[in-house]
Design a protein around this nucleic acid. Structure first.
Lengths: 316, 316
DNA sequence: TGGAATCTTGCTCATCTGAGCAGTCGGGCG
DNA sequence: CGCCCGACTGCTCAGATGAGCAAGATTCCA
């Protein structure tokens, strides 16, 4: 009987959703009352036999967002759908778009926005529309790329975002990581750099991404770290970096010595920020995303469905 | 504006389907009238952004069935959903189940059912429930397996189906293909064999599957044909076999000489049958399925979604 | 076997939704 | 400049649907 009911609910669902017949008609066809049909349909939905998917690059997964907010205490969560996505690039592009949308709708509009740099942030900048805000000043919160061909992308991102919001960009004129602690301290005490760091500390909102801890890290690409150094960090428990600082799965600094040579705001500062928006997408960033959210490094997370589910622990 | 509308329709769809809010509530949230929301939703559906799938082993695709009936003139078409299917075995099992269901519901109940044999038919027999009908006699319509370890499955299938319907099974005591034409003629003129063939010709309904033309064919497995012989048939245009007879994509016999040595009812007879149910599943049988349906060799097709779409020419 | 507890069924009623229609807006053309 | 056509909007109204309820069926013990 229970088996018969299940089969009936499937037949009813077919007629209802595929043939869009009315519950009444289905009742006639299946020799049931329309109430029974309604109940079968409800049962089919409850059992998860009916899957409704919104297939669109800008579709979000509100139910996952809600679960994330409830499970983690995030102020806000934006989860883009992975439905019908072929490549990781597509996923990152969708997520960047969503971050741009979120930033555009953010109220109150931040007077000063602290940003990191990287491929993701660059893409967010691209997706922002001219005039997305008026008079938002942008300040870099960690040392930029300056060692090789990538020189300038960090600056470009900040300038781009500021420009589109009719605001000014303040760049942090410093490498991300210095070789010697003394050099780092010297740079930080330089008046120009110190001023930028002060501004960064006073930002009304932060926007940043994160990097996975492997040979494809942006810090390796930029020449700040070697593949071997990253491997060593992984051995020590690193899952990825955020504003240039490597953390483990609990959100703790993995290598204090290295961290001491890294220029930018402190993680503690991010933890206390009122608005800290993390934008993280892609299969390789599940671990770092989980670490960031788990240790309260952001108040808002913009990510893709798979990453969100990984954070929630629903391995699918 | 058109872009804005699309985005709005996605937002509305999220709220409607994921959060199941009422159109009214969505209207309030999005600052729209509820009629506008209704229209956005309709638009989202029409644009195909909303995909509703019924995920269940016994789910059917009624819309595809209808298209198939209309496009081919089949009396009936049963198409099982491929949603969430991992393996070809799963697909074949679902299809066999559907065939069993169809047979059980078939009206008028056939007095005599002519069947072929093979993995698919065997599985259909397994899925039939004890007492699926009362007093249906089963007769084999083509020569059975008898050369090797598989001996007996053909007979078992027929006996099983008949037994579960409280009827009698009549076996065709002959190999499928004979080496010499004379032997075949001799066998056919044997009184016992001729009687069975007569009975087969008079069956009120037929149920059969089909085999693809490659080295995995059941006829190769059973030792009736060698891999080389099948390869040769393919060269001549064979796409598969039905009741032991190889046909090309137009439904014509590929090798008349071979066909002359094959024991069983004629294809012409199947073409004229009032009820001829073909059960065909799996990616490797698209070509033979298309040939059978295209040349009117069956009046009812039970198959999987992918095969059905292949027949319709919607390469997905 | 009796009887209570639970589940199922068919119903009423309130709400939700889609079809169709008239008023309104905007843009193109005389 | 004004008129007309088409698209869009908000509405009425009827049909479709879900919540809640009471009666009937079923189960499960004692």
């Amino acid at each position: 009987m229970i088996d018969t009911d299940e089969l009936l609910s499937i037949r009813a669902a077919e007629l209802y959703y595929e043939e869009n017949k009315t519950q009444d008609e289905i009742g006639t066809l299946l020799r049931l009352t329309r109430w029974k049909v309604g109940r079968l349909l409800a049962q089919a939905k409850a059992s998860g036999f009916i899957r409704i998917e919104i297939v669109h690059p800008r579709a979000r997964r509100l139910s996952v967002e809600r679960r994330l907010r409830e499970a983690t205490g995030l102020t806000d969560a934006i989860v883009v759908s992975s439905a019908g996505v072929a490549s990781d690039e597509e996923l990152q592009s969708r997520t960047a778009q969503a971050a741009a949308d979120y930033l555009t709708g953010l109220r109150p509009v931040p007077r000063t926005l602290g940003i990191s740099w990287g491929r993701t942030l660059h893409e967010v900048a691209l997706h922002l529309k001219q005039g997305w805000a008026h008079g938002v000043n942008v300040v870099q919160i960690n040392g930029g790329v300056s060692l090789n061909r990538r020189a300038g992308t960090a600056a470009a991102t900040a300038v781009n975002i500021a420009h589109k919001a009719a605001g000014a960009a303040t760049l942090l004129p410093s490498p991300a990581i210095l070789e010697r602690l003394e050099t780092k301290q010297a740079i930080e005490s330089d008046r120009a750099v110190a001023a930028v760091l002060n501004l960064a500390t006073a930002a009304s909102a932060y926007l940043f991404s994160a990097g996975q801890a492997d040979e494809n890290s942006a810090l390796v690409d930029s020449g700040y770290l070697t593949v071997e150094q990253v491997a060593e960090l992984v051995r020590k428990g690193a899952v990825g970096d955020i504003v240039g600082r490597y953390i483990d799965s609990n959100g703790n600094i993995v290598d204090p010595e290295l961290d001491g040579r890294t220029v930018g705001i402190q993680l503690e500062h991010l933890r206390q920020a009122k608005t800290a928006i993390a934008v993280i997408a892609g299969g390789s960033k599940h671990a770092i995303a989980r670490a960031i959210v788990g240790s309260g490094l952001c108040t808002v997370l913009v990510t893709d469905e798979d990453t969100a589910l990984a954070i929630l622990g629903d391995e699918a």
